[in-house]
Every structure is written in structure tokens, then in C-alpha cells.
Design a protein around this nucleic acid. Structure first.
Lengths: 219, 219, 219, 219
DNA sequence: AATGAATGAGCCTTCATTCAT
DNA sequence: GATGAATGAAGGCTCATTCAT
């Protein structure tokens, strides 16, 4: 973390690549140290443990690129703020579009096998963001019950996240060129319009016990 | 599962659990064999290799539970068929809701580090399903260009898949009990209504070059 | 051994090749069985053991090609009989000149790491031959003490055996074509003349205690 | 052997014994390390591989005891130099008379299954020695054709080498005590006198095309 | 007589970690 | 602070052997 401790920083950098490429178990401490131009014992010296290095690496990953603030004022209308939220979210998702990108893989790994690092990330990064999204949705549909708001939020988040998580499969399904044409601008517009149209047009079922009448009501 | 439970089958079963829990590298052949009640050399005897066992395991995973046919006739309207599609998809997604479920993890692993097995899965399982969804969407909005149809399909798939991929995080964000309340029935209705409302209400931008006017048009 | 048990014979044949190529430890029972077109368990079934198979194989090796009788009558003079002996010996040595020949290697292996099979070979094959050579030498130099006769015999045997044992090195030293020009005819004549000239011309030291005077006497 | 006896040297020492006793395949890395008082992983750390260790061991074997220079001046007559050569050669051959001696077996193994190490040995050690012998023989019989000189050289080398290669068999044929009586002094005198007598008395066939007249001449 | 699925011992190798320097 | 030789635990894999068929 110190400016004056480049070895430590280089180790985290190298560890990120290695962990993302190989996973925790398959990652080799020797390889990490060689990539970082450090000694074999450097990891144990600086972090004490391979696992400790992993945790610090994961935390460091989310620390980067997170300093960005919401790109529009709080006084804007909920629709504008939702569009801004989606655009911002998608930008982050697509920014690491390269499947070789180690931050990409490292975070997906955390989804599968959440470690202690995940808890930190949820508390410091993810939940605040989620709460902001919930605020916007509540403004748009104040009468919606909490559960419905959660589902709405997940519908939005899911649409965005798919372009990170589903990329390898989606690319194989519709072809690389087809996938490439789905750029940030288009997707921001698409998901925003899709979601706002849905949010405005949906009729919420009065209670959870009777979803079918609501479904029929859509028609 | 069979009455006759040969060693080979038990090995794949055990391998699935082990690979899903630990990942490929961290998985121990010894553990797999012990779980299967077989000898240490059983894996090498039956599959020749740890990697071969992995491939066969992944392929076998998708083979299971895939025999189900679309739950509604082809002559039904597109809305009905879309609801059926979502319901069916969600059912599969939530069926393995247990984060300990090895099929869950095994498939997520393939998303991150696609192996040769992934190609087979896409060709035999995923692409056919995706094409069925595209047909439905084309019926609903025949004038939409291909790119837009892809985006629509991914919006739907993304919403559903999130409940598989995002589960660990989502659970930590809104709490387990909150997440549990989002059951299959509710989510099927929600995603179906959400998506159909959006599909019907959306106004598609005439060209990709001008997303902003379309965005303004929403309002 | 039975005419009606071809599997057993084929196993010995295959074992010979495998043992010669790889040595006892590196030889694989599976490979032997495959070469013999037999089952994996065939070796254990027919010979009980890998080691038993080895012993029977080595014995079988020397059994082949040993039925040849001395090519000249016992009433010939010692010089003629020595030439015949050398010619016969060399013929056997050079007959398996191919360094890939498994009998070659198998017998060399026995020289290095004599097993129980070696004892049998010495008793049944080698010692009788050696004694015949000793008889010839005794006729040529009846006054020579036993030790000298041994040395003479080993000088002759050594010259011949070198073309079996030293072949790989000799070939590298003087080149393959140079080595090839040393054919059976030439070598038989050479070693015979060389040895007979020596035997006739040598002056034996009266006692082992004074080799130097003898050495001086040569000059 | 050194005052500072580093692990690497001890490993080669121990490897030599183990490889000679058991052969490459049957040799156990664990045993080598235990003999060397080193860790199981020492071989892989220092040599990377069991095979690399073998190569380095074989090369090291011939390196030892090879620093000796020809024991007599170059200005001595060819007879004296031949005696010196034989004495020196025999000394090296008999020096490792103990059949348990690992250098003995290791070199014989190379004869049977020459590896890359053999090429090095031939080039650096064996061929120079062979050439010195050829020089001496050429002085003794300048009119001899190259092929004949080769045969002469091999006759001398073969006689000497037999006491290394044929030892296990020879001992069984004439008994241990008989073999023991053939000590360095006696054998040096014997082989020298035998060979010099032959070289001086032999009548070389005029051409390679007619070996038979020489054979006939014996009668 | 012959098979081949299954076994279990053991080997080479890898890898994170330590410790003297 | 940093090194690299050395460690020991453990893993994947091979192989001879067995046993029910």
C-alpha cells in the first residue's frame, strides 16, 4: 500500500493475474513471485500466507475503479438517475470485457466460492450501491412492497451483470461479432428503456398469494 | 441412480461434488474415490486421467434434467409461451438453489474457465433453447432488428440467471429470509410480467446511431 | 513349452523383447501381454510372477541356438580346433550383432546383474565350452600352469566377446562403416592368427613373482 | 569427499550406488536421498529430474580417476608404451574389481543402453585413449592397413575389458580363488606378452579380399 | 483356460513454507 | 529487508496382482 513498497504492490498485481488465470488452488506462489520479480519467499515474507495474499488481492481489486461517484446530481428525476445508474453499472461491467482480464475472473470466482473477502466487498461496495438503486425504484413505484422492489432491482442488476457473467456462453451462442455489436451505448439505452417501460407498465399483484391473477392482468 | 450402480457412475457422481466444492485443481482424486467407495486407482483405470474425469463429469451434468420438454404446446400464443419458457428456465435455475449443489458450481466454473466441454454444452443444449426464445420474441416484435432481439433475449435470460449466479451476493445484500421469499412462483410471475410489459411498451430506436432520442422518447 | 500351449510361448517371446529393451524393472507386464496378444493376467496365470517369467525367459534364450555342435572332429589338431572354436564362438557373437536384438541385451544384463538364471547357464552351457577351450590350449602348451591357461583362455574369449559387449562404444569410436568392415570371416582369421601366434611365441615366466624379466624377455 | 560436502555432491555419490545396484528404473529417488542424508525433494530441486540426475551421475563417474596421465614418457619405444598402456588400462579395469562397485555397473549399463551420456564419454575420454593405442600399434606394424589396426586394438582392449565385463561369469566358471589369482601384475605381463608376441609374429593377409589363404596357412 | 474390472502399494514430482545468511 | 537452499507433506499416477466370472 505504501508508495515506498513497490515489491508488495507488484506482488498483488502479479497475484491478481495468477489467481484469476488459474484459480486459488492452481495458482503457484513461485509463478507469482517470478512475475513480480521477487524472491520465492517474498509472499510468505510480506503476507505470511498464500491465503492472506489472496484476500488482500481480492480486496484490492474492488478498491480500484471504485472511487467514481454517481455521475449525476441527486436532484435529478428518478428516471434520469436510473439511466445514469445503469449506464454507470454497465460501464464497469463492460470495462473489463476482456475475458482474460484478471479482475473479471477474480470477481466471478468470488461469486462461486465466496471467501471472507466477499463479506467486505458486500458491506463496503455492493450494498450501498444496491440501496441507491432501491431508492430510485421506490420513487418510481412508491406503492410497491419490499419484495417487489427487490425483484425489480434484481431484474435490472441481472440484465447488466449478464454481460459480465454470461459473456463466454453468449459469445458462443450468437457469435463474437454479434456480441461485439452490443456496445455500451446501445446496451445502456436498451436496458434503461426496457426496465423503465416495464416498471411503468407493470401491474403489481396485490399479494404474493395470488400471482396468477396478476399474470392474467398483464394481458 | 441406477439399481446397478457401477463404479464408473459412482465416480462421476462423486467427482461432480468434489469438483464443484473445490474446483478442478483443489479437488483430490483420493477424495473422489473414497466418496465413490472405490479404489484410488479407479479414476485412472476408468478415465485415464483426472482431466478426462472432469470433462466427462461436466458433460454428464448437463445431460441430467435436460430431458424435459417445453411445458406448453407450440400452438399457444407467444405470451403464453414466453411465460412458459421463463417458468421452465427459472425452475431449472432455482431447482439447484442450494449453493452447495455441485451442478450449480460446476456450471458456473465453466462460465469462468470454459473448457472443451463448454462447446459441447452450447451446441447441444444452450443454443437450441436460445433459438426457441428468439422465435418467441420475433413473434412479439417482428419489426425488431436482430441486435435488438438479442438484447431482449439477454434481458430475459439475464434476469433469470441472476438468481443462479448472483445468489451468494444477493443473499448477503438483502438477507437470507428476504431472498427466500422470492420463490419460483413469484419470480416467474414477476419476470414474465416485467419482460412482457417492457417488450410491448418499448419503442425501438430506428438506428443504433441515435440512442438518446429514443431514450428521451421514453419519457 | 508345449506345442499345444502357444500362449505361453508367445509370452516368453514377448517377454524377451520387453525385458531386453527396458530391463526387468522398467518392463511392463501389460506391454508383454499385449505384445503376446494375451490377457493382462496371463503372466500371473502362466508364470505366477513377473520374476518367474524373467527367469524362464532367460533360460529359454540360451536354449535357442545352442544345439549346434562343434563343427570339426575331435581328432583334428589343436590349431585347427582352436580356429574352429573361435569361428564358432564369433559366429554366435556376431549373429546377434543387431544391438536391438533382445537376446544380446538380455545376456548382457545377466552379466551385470546375475540372477539365479545365470548359474544355470554357466553350468549347462558356458563351463562345458570353456573346458573344451582349456583342453585345446593345454594341448598347445602342455607345460603351462593352470593360471596361465586360464589367462590364455580369457584372452581368447575376451577378444571375441568384445565384439558383443563393446559394440556400442566401438561403433562410436571408429564409426559404423569401419565397424561393419570387421565381418565374421576377417575377425575369425584375425583372432585365430593373433592368438595362435601369441600362444606359440610366448615365453611363460617361471613364476608369478617375476613378471618383469618376462617382460624384458619379450624385447 | 570434500571437506565441504554439499548436498549436490552427496546426491551424485548416492545416486551412483543406487543406479548401479538397481538400474535406472528400479532405483528409488527416496533411497538416493536417504543415502545422501537429504530430503526427498532434494533430487528434484538440484537436478530437476530423476533422469537428469542419472546423466550427471554417469558423466561424473568417468570424470573421476581420469586425470591420470600416461605413466611413461612419449619418447619411450612402442613396446614399452604398449605395456604401459595395458598396465594403465588394466589398473583402471581391476581397480573397480568389486562387482558391487557402482562405477563398474554403471558403465556396463551404458554399454547396454547407451544414453546421451555415452556420447560425451566417447568423445572426451574413450576416443583419445583409443587413438593413443592406435598410434602405438601403427609404430609397431606400420604396414598394417587401418582395418587390421582396428582389429589389433580391439584384441588388446577386449582382453583387458573382459576382466571387467566377464567377471561375474568368469568367477563362476573357474571359481573365485582361481580368478583372484589373476592379479594386476600377472595380467599386465600376460596380456602385454601375449599381444606383443602376436603383433610381432602375425603375418597379415595382403588384402581384405583374401582372408582364406591366411586361414589355410595355419594348416 | 482365460478374462478384465478392481485393488493397494508405492513412486516421482510439486508446492508452500522455513531458516540460516 | 531480502535471499535461496532445503524441507516435508501430499498428490496424481503407474503397475503388478487378484478375484469373480
Amino acid at each position: 500500500m505504501d508508495v515506498q513498497d513497490p515489491t508488495r504492490v507488484r506482488l498483488i498485481q502479479a497475484a491478481g493475474e495468477e489467481f484469476a488465470e488459474k484459480g486459488f488452488a492452481a495458482a503457484r506462489v513461485r509463478e507469482i513471485c517470478e512475475r513480480a520479480g521477487a524472491n520465492v519467499a517474498a509472499v510468505n515474507y510480506h503476507f505470511g500466507d498464500k491465503e492472506q495474499l489472496y484476500v488482500e488481492t481480492v480486496v484490492h481489486v474492488h478498491g480500484c475503479g471504485n472511487e467514481e461517484e454517481p455521475p449525476c446530481g441527486e436532484d435529478a428525476g428518478p428516471e434520469t438517475r436510473l439511466r445514469a445508474f445503469i449506464g454507470h453499472f454497465l460501464a464497469r461491467v463492460l470495462a473489463i470485457q476482456d475475458p482474460q482480464d484478471w479482475r473479471h475472473r477474480l470477481m466471478l470466482r468470488e461469486l462461486i466460492l465466496p471467501t471472507a473477502a466477499s463479506d467486505v466487498l458486500v458491506r463496503t461496495v455492493i450494498r450501498p450501491k444496491f440501496n441507491r438503486l432501491m431508492e430510485i425504484l421506490r420513487e418510481l413505484r412508491p406503492e410497491a412492497e419490499e419484495r417487489r422492489l427487490h425483484a425489480l432491482a434484481f431484474s435490472i442488476v441481472g440484465q447488466c451483470m449478464y454481460y459480465r457473467m454470461g459473456r463466454p456462453v453468449a459469445e458462443r451462442v450468437i457469435g463474437s461479432e454479434g456480441f461485439e455489436s452490443l456496445d455500451l451505448e446501445f446496451l445502456t439505452e436498451h436496458i434503461s428503456s426496457f426496465s423503465l417501460a416495464a416498471i411503468k407498465a407493470m401491474e403489481f399483484a396485490p399479494a404474493a398469494a395470488e400471482p396468477d391473477p396478476a399474470a392474467a392482468g398483464v394481458k
